[in-house]
Design a protein around this nucleic acid. Sequence first.
DNA 1: TTAGGGTTAG
Length: 489
Amino acid sequence: MQRNSVFADNFAYPFLVKACSLFKQVQMIHTHVEKFGFLNDIFVPNALIDSYCKCGLGGVDVARKLFYTMSERDVVSWNSMISGLVKSGELGEARRLFDEMPERNTWSWNTVLDGYAKAGEMSAAFELFGKMHERNVISWSTMVLGYSKSGDMDMARMMFDKMPVKNLVPWTIMISGYAEKGFAKEAFTLYDQMERSGLKLDSGAFISILAASSESGLLGLGRRIHTSVGRSRFRHSTQVCNALVDMYAKCGSLDKAMKVFDGMVERDVVSWNSILQGLAMHGHGERALELFSRMRCEGFTPNGVTFIGVLCACTHGGLVDDGRHYFSIMGKDYGIVPQVKHYGCMIDLLGRGGHLTEAFKLVQDLPMEPNAIILGTLLGACRKRNNVELTEKVIDQLIKLDPSNANNYSILSNIYATAGHWSNFTKVRLQMKSASTQKLPGASSIELDDGVHEFTVADRSHPQSSRIYKMMDRLGHHLKQVGYVPRAY
DNA sequence: TTAGGGTTAG
């Protein structure tokens, strides 16, 4: 009896390898096929290269070794290796291999093209695109996406309009691109065109456009997509409904988010996380925590993202003790190792709750290097307490991490001004000038029927500017009457 | 067996 007959033959191995997502599993099969001599069948090492690259964690290095030891390579071996290199960010080496290839097909070109587009190197992408002998929908879509992600919607549109054949993907990319950047009118018009052209959206298209709408708060477009979802066969899709919940929550329509959530046929952990985050974001700390216990009662296991929502809920509800409690149980009861983001939430919670020393201690004891977000959160807490000494310490670290961020200098100078330390104030102002940093004005935006309107401090560019400021004065007056005292800086 | 859009995260 042959023992290996219970395993697989050379035809089954590529499928078996493809089903593996863990490095160890791929490695196990690798050892096995090597032992039985199946590596000579090119399908097997090709599948191994692909799987090694997809499981991350140094998988690319093992794939690379395998690639170079292969006695014979076909175009798929090269493409798989190049794709792996592109995905792990080793674009230079990917290009070198591409140039060395004995023969290339459209897949090879598209893989490198995608690498440039993802890296935002659009001039390199454009050059490569120009040299292609054969382009397919994927080549064109890659260019449209690349331009859209790099913010050049005009070029994206030009490519889109020039495409000889379009399918759902480029339409989705283009509409999502407009939506993400707040071009409501363009997104709407294009969406209409797509529907009129008879294309039926799939769940990916719905999710993509919804995610883009929530990014810039385009409630109008989100509602429109919701109507289409309702008419489609995806109206009960968990993923699509999750995207709807998130969209409504982020666009400030919490009731609608709740309604979609309640109406869902099947929920997963993402559904719970989305609604929990929505409640927390809008200051309903207690309701979010109630939902959290309901989630556990219904048998769902919280993950790391859930706890970010939970801690955020505690912060916005001023529930410091609850926050401490949940932070401690996430490791104890659920085996979740706190990530930087969790520490960020805790520092925010403690800082806002007035426990500055404890927040400081947490940063000092951090198991990882504090990043700009952690320090920025701590800074926010210091500012609130007007603590000059601690602020100086934090800013010092922050400026080292990110010397070009003008906000840091600006906050420090404000703190000095408030405390009356005028010589220090002047010093920082001079430092700002010499570092040639300029504070970018913060902008707010609002969506009306005809699109998103953006405005900044002392903005007079709007045609109805004087009416807007009159209304602002009235509101300010009203706020003072009800007892609001603005912060000094 | 290899390529394109897509949900939750201070």
